[in-house]
């Protein structure tokens, strides 16, 4: 059969089919857009309008009551003041810890998935700290690590007096304590996410990476982690955003940004500039800079997710 011998009805069908496809596509587009409209409206009005207002105010010296145009001054202050990286140091430290957190959560998830003794109990218990607010987590940690708090008292009692120190009074140990609180809070969420991811992998492969036998660690890395890539991507995306944008509540209660302001993440700085100093213009500029960074990270990660999904 060739085109010349194709019966006329078949050709008409093709056109009708094309038209039907286009109609279906248009219907889908209509349904699609209508489904998304309420969400788009809420997000546009309540978030992006605020962002636009922030961008506009970043070029002024707004203090809430009056706003004079100052051009790029706020941005110049941020980039030329020489402490740009210091501002982001706390965020960067947390970012750098994410791979460790990832491996930690995956390991625990794998082991629980493998039904080691007590797995049901562990699965439940690890999530409880995640359910607590950052204020609670921060307070617990601050009370435990106070100079005469529980940890130092305990160390004194077991004869490890020399290890007792001013945990929150030195930047490195303060960051360590904060990271510990962050891990404590995030373990449960990570385990749950990876348990879900593991259930999408065929049991035989998991069998191959079971806990018994030598080389378990290596098998984890070479077999399981690549298969868990989509889950890891989801986990990393949500946690990267959290680490860049939401550390305020934890730090506020634990170290108040100290010692000497060295554990102050950027969103805390924004809070201080806006509400303590009343310099809402500078706070807006810093917000914009943070936004750009977060978008860059997220876009990069979404592209990765897309590529993995193929």
């Amino acid at each position: 059969m060739n085109a010349l011998t194709v019966p006329p009805t078949a050709v008409a069908s093709a056109t009708v089919q094309r038209r039907r496809r286009r109609l279906r596509a248009r219907r889908a587009a209509l349904v699609g857009w209508l489904s998304c409209t309420p969400a788009a409206i809420v997000i546009l009005v309540l978030v992006w309008f605020g962002v636009a207002s922030t961008i506009q105010h970043s070029f002024t010296n707004w203090n809430g009551f009056s706003a004079d145009w100052v051009g790029m001054k706020n941005y110049v202050d941020i980039f030329a003041s020489g402490d740009f990286f210091e501002r982001f140091r706390t965020n960067l430290v947390f970012l750098a810890s994410l791979p460790v957190l990832l491996v930690f959560c995956v390991s625990v998830a794998v082991v629980i998935y493998d039904h080691i003794p007590g797995w049901r109990f562990f699965r439940s218990v690890y999530y409880i700290p995640t359910v607590l607010s950052s204020a609670v987590v921060g307070m617990i940690v601050a009370v435990l690590f106070a100079p005469r708090g529980a940890i130092n008292t305990f160390l004194g009692r077991v004869g490890l007096e020399s290890l007792a120190q001013d945990w929150l009074g030195r930047t490195d140990t303060a960051l360590g304590v904060l990271l510990m609180a962050f891990f404590w809070q995030s373990l449960g969420q990570g385990v749950l996410v990876f348990l879900a991811g593991l259930s999408t992998i065929s049991p035989e492969i998991i069998e191959a990476a079971s806990v018994d036998g030598a080389g378990w660690w290596r098998r984890l890395f070479t077999i399981l982690l690549p298969l868990l890539a989509p889950t890891s991507a989801y986990f990393l995306l949500t946690n990267v955003v959290y680490v860049l944008v939401d550390l305020f509540s934890l730090v506020y209660v634990t170290t108040q940004g100290g010692p000497g302001g060295t554990t102050t993440p950027v969103d805390y700085t924004i809070y201080l500039k806006a509400f303590q100093e009343g310099n809402l213009g500078a706070a807006s500029a810093l917000s914009v800079v943070l936004l750009v960074i977060v978008f860059a990270c997220s876009w990069f990660q979404l592209r990765l997710i897309d590529r993995i999904g193929e």
């Binding site: 309540l46 207002s53 806006a274 978008f295 997220s298």
Partner: peptide, 13 residues
């Protein structure tokens, strides 16, 4: 992308 907007920044507006 909206997930990345800090609540503090849009509180006042």
């Amino acid at each position: 992308a909206t997930m990345g907007v800090p609540m503090i920044s849009i509180l006042v507006p």
